[in-house]
């Protein structure tokens, strides 16, 4: 059962990390007039963190399935 185990705790940790990464004050650090490969840093940051979170959740969820 994945619910009570390590995976559950990992998911909660990911949730907390996501809340931190997507909100003030961490978010404000990236609101700068810089561009990464032409993309504004803010947009780049949000989408990259978002994708990373999804990857981590996928890793946890699919690992637990084994």
């Amino acid at each position: 059962m994945m619910r009570k185990g390590l995976a559950g705790q990992r998911l909660v940790a990911v949730f907390l990390a996501g809340v931190l990464l997507f909100d003030f004050p961490l978010l404000s650090l990236f609101d700068r007039p810089l561009r990464v490969w032409g993309v504004p840093l803010l947009h780049f940051y949000v989408f990259v963190v978002w994708a990373a979170l999804i990857l981590v959740i996928a890793w946890i969820a699919e690992r637990g399935a084994r």
Partner: peptide
């Protein structure tokens, strides 16, 4: 508003991370 359309999708991403619970 630029990236202000995103909270509507970031919220569900975070909520789904807790969906298994």
């Amino acid at each position: 508003g630029g990236i202000w359309f995103l909270p509507t999708y970031l919220g569900p991403t975070l909520a789904m991370s807790l969906a298994w619970l």
